[in-house]
Design a protein around this nucleic acid. Structure first.
Lengths: 184, 184
DNA sequence: GTCTATACAGTGATAGAC
DNA sequence: GTCTATCACTGTATAGAC
């Protein structure tokens, strides 16, 4: 299906890097961390991704592609806006509960002052795609766009608060409010 | 006034470290960065703060103290809740426009998986104090607490989105919505 | 309280054998 | 495609002179 199907090792490196970035941030992981996880030496990572920024940019691109793919699937379905927002909130919640991770781009967005330019570009692209999808779900137009921004901001912020306070319930109540507000 | 007034150099180190953390995160600055900024050698920083976690914990404590102090000042004033939220939104906006910085604890909250335990504790304390103040402003009780969580989450998330997308207007519109919602 | 000097572990990245 | 070996550099932290 894809034009350039990815090698298995390349895929595993990206997945492992994504986990590390969500947990520790771009400045909080090393090629050696990845190497230990996927079972090859750190020098071999450079064969697949010449530099750390290449790897991180590929991680974000793969994340954005999943959003695009998911959005297209929803497009063809009979789900209501409420069901789509619920799905999104569940996805964010899994991020937190499945190992206390941050949203990939929430983490990179916070760090973006110390990120290589191409990673910043890919992070911005992720937010544009996600906001575009949410705006469509919420009816489009200026109102849809504004609701999308409010909703996504609430979710990203709620992740940070819930993680810091070690309070999963906080994420539940804030995301319930955000969904209610978005659909009002 | 204070029981243990802080030496001038200690103060400058804390202020400089705060700037670096807000810009690059805990894993994105070094003692040498601070040293270059305040004009002494990195070894001398250790005289004031033995370890990096000591320094970061002191930075967060100083930040929380300012919130406490500000809250006490507001307590004695005749400001309305709307004025207090406006002040808070303005404070957050300055953080962003004055050099594209993140909220100190928004940054640390995102990174908290890779932070020393005492820094995590201080970050949680900051959020508790800030949420407590906001809950009081918003009328207290369960409703006030929930409004405070929604409001603060929106502001933290809006900072991330605005920074990533390099879009100051996004912060303005999201914070205006958040204030409206909190006061509804 | 600040300095020089240094220890020692970790970093991203490269060269070249297999 | 993965390895070993190694590079130059940066990181936190310490010892001891001034």
């Amino acid at each position: 299906m894809d034009e350039h199907p990815m090698s298995d090792m390349k895929r595993r490196i990206i997945d492992s890097a994504q986990e590390f970035i969500q947990r520790n941030g771009y400045n909080g992981f090393s090629f050696r961390d990845i190497a230990a996880k996927v079972g090859i030496r750190s020098a071999s990572i450079h064969h697949h991704f010449p530099t750390k920024s290449d790897l991180a940019a590929a991680v974000v691109r793969s994340y954005t592609d999943r959003v695009r793919h998911q959005a297209a699937e929803f497009e063809a379905s009979a789900m209501t806006p409420a069901e789509k927002l619920d799905w999104f909130a569940g996805f964010i919640k899994t991020t937190l509960t499945d190992d206390g991770k941050m949203c990939l781009c929430g983490m990179l967005g916070a760090e973006c002052n110390s990120l290589p330019p191409e990673v910043v570009r890919e992070t911005a692209a992720f937010f544009k795609v996600t906001l575009g999808w949410l705006a469509g779900v919420l009816g489009g137009g200026k109102s849809g766009e504004q609701r999308a921004r409010n909703f996504l901001a609430s979710m990203e912020g709620a992740l940070i608060l819930a993680k810091s306070l070690d309070d999963t319930a906080l994420l539940d109540t804030v995301s319930a409010s955000a969904i209610r507000e978005a659909l009002r």
